[in-house]
Amino acid sequence: MPTENSIKIMPKAVVCEESNLRGDITFSAGCVVHPSATVIAEAGPIIIGENCILEEYTTIAHRLQAGASWNANNILSIGTHNVFEVGCTVEAARIGDKNVFESKCFVGPGVTVPSGCVVGAGIRMHTEQLLAENTIVYGQQALQREGMEKQSSQTLQIDFLRKVLPNYHHLRKPNHDPKKARSVV
Results as ranks from 00 to 15, higher is better:
residue 173 K to T: 08
residue 4 E to R: 10
residue 102 E to S: 06
residue 12 K to L: 03
residue 130 L to Q: 12
residue 148 M to T: 10
residue 30 G to Q: 08
residue 43 A to P: 01
residue 1 M to R: 05
residue 148 M to F: 13
residue 179 K to N: 10
residue 83 V to K: 12
residue 55 E to A: 09
residue 1 M to V: 02
residue 152 S to A: 09
residue 149 E to V: 05
residue 8 K to M: 07
residue 167 N to M: 14
residue 30 G to I: 06
residue 140 Q to I: 10
residue 181 A to D: 15
residue 125 M to S: 02
residue 48 I to N: 02
residue 100 V to Q: 09
residue 134 N to K: 15
residue 138 Y to N: 03
residue 56 E to C: 04
residue 108 G to N: 01
residue 143 L to W: 09
residue 176 H to G: 00
residue 181 A to L: 07
residue 160 F to S: 06
residue 128 E to V: 03
residue 137 V to T: 05
residue 164 V to W: 15
residue 178 P to W: 12
residue 124 R to F: 15
residue 156 L to F: 14
residue 32 V to E: 11
residue 11 P to N: 12
residue 136 I to G: 01
residue 101 F to S: 04
residue 22 R to P: 00
residue 79 G to M: 03
residue 32 V to C: 14
residue 96 G to S: 11
residue 175 N to F: 12
residue 4 E to A: 04
residue 168 Y to W: 08
residue 124 R to A: 04
residue 169 H to V: 06
residue 20 N to H: 10
residue 133 E to H: 13
residue 3 T to P: 09
residue 26 T to H: 14
residue 117 C to R: 03
residue 27 F to M: 00
residue 98 K to E: 08
residue 84 F to E: 03
residue 56 E to N: 10
residue 10 M to P: 00
residue 93 A to F: 14
residue 174 P to C: 02
residue 100 V to R: 12
residue 113 V to D: 06
residue 118 V to E: 09
residue 121 A to W: 05
residue 165 L to Q: 04
residue 136 I to M: 11
residue 19 S to F: 08
residue 67 G to V: 09
residue 51 N to S: 12
residue 2 P to C: 01
residue 19 S to H: 05
residue 49 G to N: 08
residue 36 S to N: 05
residue 150 K to V: 06
residue 22 R to D: 02
residue 5 N to R: 10
residue 54 L to I: 02
residue 92 A to E: 11
residue 163 K to F: 02
residue 37 A to V: 08
residue 87 G to V: 01
residue 64 L to D: 07
residue 51 N to F: 10
residue 88 C to V: 08
residue 80 T to K: 15
residue 47 I to S: 12
residue 132 A to E: 15
residue 25 I to L: 01
residue 65 Q to H: 11
residue 43 A to S: 12
residue 178 P to V: 05
residue 35 P to F: 11
residue 62 H to W: 10
residue 134 N to I: 00
residue 17 E to F: 09
residue 89 T to E: 12
residue 23 G to N: 06
residue 3 T to K: 11
residue 111 V to K: 05
residue 179 K to C: 00
residue 134 N to T: 01
residue 166 P to W: 12
residue 9 I to H: 03
residue 6 S to P: 00
residue 70 W to N: 02
residue 47 I to E: 15
residue 11 P to M: 08
residue 18 E to Q: 12
residue 21 L to A: 06
residue 68 A to R: 14
residue 113 V to L: 15
residue 113 V to Y: 12
residue 80 T to F: 14
residue 107 V to K: 09
residue 11 P to L: 03
residue 119 V to C: 02
residue 79 G to C: 08
residue 74 N to G: 01
residue 28 S to R: 10
residue 84 F to R: 01
residue 20 N to K: 07
residue 13 A to R: 11
residue 58 T to L: 06
residue 96 G to L: 13
residue 24 D to E: 13
residue 56 E to G: 00
residue 39 V to I: 15
residue 58 T to Y: 11
residue 131 L to Y: 13
residue 57 Y to T: 01
residue 164 V to M: 14
residue 143 L to Q: 14
residue 144 Q to C: 14
residue 137 V to L: 13
residue 96 G to K: 03
residue 34 H to A: 08
residue 182 R to G: 07
residue 149 E to P: 00
residue 145 R to H: 08
residue 136 I to F: 14
residue 84 F to M: 04
residue 136 I to L: 13
